[in-house]
Simulated assay, not measured.
Amino acid sequence: MSENLALRPRAEALGQALPPLLASAEHLAATVILGDHGRRRAGMGDEFWQYRPAHSGDSARMIDWRRSARSDAHFVREREWQAAQTVLLWVDAGRSMSFTGDRGRAPKSDRAQLLALAVSVLLLRGGERVGLTGETAPPRSGRSQLLRIADALTEDHPGDYAAPEASGLVSHGRMVLISDFLGDMAGVERAMARAADKSMRGTLLQVLDPAEEEFPFDGRTIFESMGGSLRHETMRASDLRSRYLDRLAERKARLDTLARASGWHYHCHHTGQSAQPALLWLYRALERGA
């Protein structure tokens, strides 16, 4: 009985939060124009997709000689692969994601959850199987999967920083990691290494608040982590600005290098910007990784 009573406030909170979040994700997804190709990928299907210039390593059997005869170059006739892909997402639930530098601006966690759900809408519409890493929302297809994903995204992490879960990975699938990536990078590198073992590719989407990019602090300032585990007081915050910006630039460069080395894509998005370009980039990045 006591357990049921304890679950009731959470259930009521979910009932209030999930419909607006899902509605916002649906609305955001509707603003993105995907074009005629949608989720098409080259593969072993039967339907013609496009011609592409022949590359080194293409066999003579792959060349379309009729099309090539009309130009000085050789072309390969590609067919569309209709098989569904599996896409796994991880959205950082650490306390650092609850930061916002302006009361009128939503925290990073809100934007990260919105983007994760919106790209899920687009992928599920395209027939893909979508889920979260770990065991909370295994990959499935169908609209009802959105509610499962949204429910799992509302779970909190007790620490300032969270590490990606690297269980439940699927061979040759896709992986999306959304975080501020300001914590220890060991967990990110470990998850990407396990994904590589499964021949998975994916994207790193870094979500930052504009204040974290600009460091608009001066004079006496107390810096405290969102979980309260870290605290630093200074009388001249401006003296820290150049060192902070250098370290942030180093972190971005490290993420970009890590992504390139793994065949992934990296992008940094600010919560002061519209979510639409970030969603379009994320969807296109998943297409390019296919």
Results as ranks from 00 to 15, higher is better:
residue 48 F to R: 04
residue 54 A to F: 01
residue 54 A to S: 14
residue 112 A to S: 14
residue 77 R to P: 03
residue 76 V to T: 04
residue 81 W to Q: 14
residue 50 Q to N: 02
residue 77 R to F: 09
residue 89 L to Q: 10
residue 97 M to C: 05
residue 67 R to W: 10
residue 61 R to C: 00
residue 94 G to Q: 11
residue 113 Q to P: 00
residue 78 E to R: 08
residue 108 K to D: 03
residue 77 R to S: 13
residue 73 A to N: 07
residue 94 G to F: 14
residue 76 V to E: 05
residue 99 F to Y: 15
residue 68 S to P: 01
residue 82 Q to F: 06
residue 117 L to Q: 05
residue 98 S to G: 06
residue 60 A to M: 09
residue 104 G to D: 13
residue 105 R to G: 11
residue 73 A to V: 04
residue 51 Y to S: 02
residue 99 F to V: 09
residue 44 M to R: 13
residue 82 Q to I: 08
residue 75 F to P: 02
residue 63 I to Y: 03
residue 75 F to L: 14
residue 63 I to W: 05
residue 50 Q to K: 13
residue 47 E to K: 13
residue 55 H to C: 10
residue 99 F to Q: 01
residue 68 S to G: 08
residue 73 A to H: 06
residue 112 A to M: 05
residue 108 K to Q: 14
residue 68 S to E: 08
residue 104 G to Y: 05
residue 48 F to T: 11
residue 102 D to L: 07
residue 44 M to C: 00
residue 70 R to Y: 03
residue 45 G to F: 12
residue 105 R to L: 15
residue 67 R to E: 09
residue 59 S to V: 03
residue 103 R to Q: 12
residue 80 E to C: 15
residue 85 Q to S: 10
residue 104 G to A: 03
residue 69 A to Y: 08
residue 84 A to R: 15
residue 106 A to P: 01
residue 106 A to V: 13
residue 96 S to C: 05
residue 91 V to S: 11
residue 57 G to C: 09
residue 108 K to R: 15
residue 99 F to H: 06
residue 64 D to E: 04
residue 111 R to Q: 12
residue 44 M to V: 03
residue 74 H to Q: 14
residue 63 I to V: 15
residue 45 G to E: 11
residue 61 R to V: 00
residue 51 Y to G: 04
residue 57 G to I: 10
residue 71 S to R: 06
residue 59 S to A: 09
residue 59 S to N: 12
residue 115 L to W: 11
residue 79 R to Q: 07
residue 70 R to H: 07
residue 89 L to V: 12
residue 114 L to Q: 14
residue 76 V to M: 05
residue 115 L to D: 07
residue 116 A to K: 06
residue 87 V to F: 00
residue 91 V to A: 14
residue 97 M to R: 02
residue 85 Q to Y: 03
residue 59 S to M: 00
residue 104 G to S: 01
residue 90 W to P: 14
residue 64 D to S: 08
residue 44 M to A: 13
residue 99 F to D: 00
residue 74 H to K: 10
residue 88 L to H: 07
residue 88 L to W: 04
residue 70 R to M: 06
residue 83 A to E: 13
residue 52 R to C: 06
residue 100 T to D: 02
residue 102 D to W: 08
residue 116 A to H: 08
residue 63 I to H: 04
residue 98 S to P: 00
residue 63 I to K: 05
residue 77 R to D: 04
residue 56 S to G: 02
residue 105 R to K: 01
residue 48 F to I: 11
residue 112 A to L: 08
residue 84 A to W: 10
residue 91 V to R: 00
residue 49 W to I: 09
residue 62 M to P: 00
residue 82 Q to Y: 01
residue 99 F to P: 04
residue 84 A to P: 15
residue 96 S to P: 01
residue 80 E to K: 11
residue 58 D to P: 01
residue 45 G to R: 08
residue 68 S to D: 06
residue 70 R to G: 09
residue 45 G to V: 07
residue 54 A to M: 12
residue 48 F to A: 07
residue 55 H to Y: 01
residue 70 R to I: 06
residue 107 P to D: 12
residue 107 P to N: 13
residue 85 Q to L: 15
residue 88 L to G: 05
residue 108 K to H: 05
residue 44 M to Q: 11
residue 62 M to Y: 02
residue 93 A to K: 00
residue 64 D to Q: 06
residue 103 R to S: 12
